[in-house]
Design a protein around this nucleic acid. Structure first.
Lengths: 210, 210
DNA sequence: ATATTTTTTGACCAATTGGACAGAAAAATG
DNA sequence: CATTTTTCTGTCCAATTGGTCAAAAAATAT
């Protein structure tokens, strides 16, 4: 076997691959797929360029693997919305988890953002497949809540878009946010954002008294 | 003079430059600065590669010129928020104008998005300068409205961020939006988004009856 | 220790690409 | 018409870059 496959990996192999993936995440999230070079990734990973290729075969493969391995964790907050819970609480929890992910995983957020911004050439299938299915399912739950009068009447798909947009904004466009706010520290910024979003969504989603 | 400068341009020069800028906007908004090639821009503009260089000097110069020339129009809706108008109406108008810009100028939106996503290396000054100044000014207006009880009490900066995020989302991540919604036509999508955002911001911003 | 497999790299290559250059073509100027 | 200036392109170049290859080094197995 001339290529390191993903099937049966030794501990060392898994660690090396992880180091490369982290270095690649740094590079890709800042410069995009074309902007990041194998050279840079290799240097940051502390190994030679051919060694990186030895482990992944190509730059593209690293990028794709990153996206795929992150998709699961990326969607988990949405997946965890429970039809059994309290509607407003469930959605607020979702909003806050997404915001926390923006704070703790900004590189991953930017990786997805650039990918989709550029047309999602290697994610398109997932988008209209798994993602659409999951979103439709949760949209149904939200619709039911609205119909039962436990939540404001609102388009559930666009509601989900708005949550994505507002929470990811703090990671993807942090440079702009920080420039406008005058470079606040991370804790303060995300604390303010949390308060704002909570308040905002409570207002928008609380069912109107009849 | 060996380079075409921006001072005194003939009609023909202005037209040629405009053709190049349009071609470049197409390329940059899809592939980003590094992903777009001079070759592609030249082909799409219907001229040779050195001709493009003749007019702008470098690929970077085209990119920078695009950003600069668009900044003005991009911020105009925010600039037009009037302290004299009705608070809710002013903000709803702003939201709708931003949404319309997402619909009519998605390439421009993506151009800014990629630029900021990648750290705004050639826009940073504008962000913490002109942009911050403008946003602070309008935030003050919104704060006053809130204090006067004409608008919900809300953090004005984060409100502006949320408007940016939600409206630009429809342009920047349209691939994802369309995938999830099942490829609706443009008119239907933006009509729905308009209805959603209007309703959403009315709920969130209407002052609570005391 | 010896053989074998796996890991790691230096040297190299082909393709891409931004752009320099010289000069042709066209237009403006006299 | 002649000349000068502007517009435009074919050709070429140097730098970058993704990736190959042979072989060294290290680890593992016998």
């Amino acid at each position: 076997m001339t290529d390191v496959q993903t099937r049966k990996l030794t501990r060392i192999q898994r660690e090396k691959r992880e180091v490369i993936l982290q270095a690649a995440l740094n590079a890709f999230s800042v410069h995009g797929l074309r902007g990041a070079t194998l050279e840079k990734i290799a240097v940051e990973a502390g190994m030679s360029k051919p060694h990186v290729v030895y482990y992944f075969g190509s730059k593209d493969a690293i990028y794709t693997e990153l996206l795929e391995s992150l998709l699961e964790i990326w969607l988990s907050p949405l997946r965890d919305i429970s039809p059994q819970g309290d509607p407003l609480a469930e959605i607020l929890t979702y909003v806050r988890r997404k915001l926390r992910m923006s704070q703790e995983m900004p590189r991953e957020s930017k990786l997805f953002a650039t990918e989709i911004l550029h047309g999602a050439p290697r994610t398109g299938a997932s988008l209209s497949g798994d993602l659409k299915e999951l979103v439709d399912e949760k949209a149904d739950v939200i619709s039911r809540w609205s119909a039962e009068g436990r939540l404001a009447r609102i388009d559930p798909h666009h509601l989900i878009f708005s949550i994505w947009a507002m929470t990811q904004h703090y990671a993807d466009f942090d440079v702009q946010v920080r420039a406008v706010l005058g470079a606040p520290d991370d804790a303060a910024l995300f604390s303010d954002a949390d308060a704002f979003l909570t308040d905002f969504f409570v207002r928008a989603l609380r069912p109107t008294a009849t």
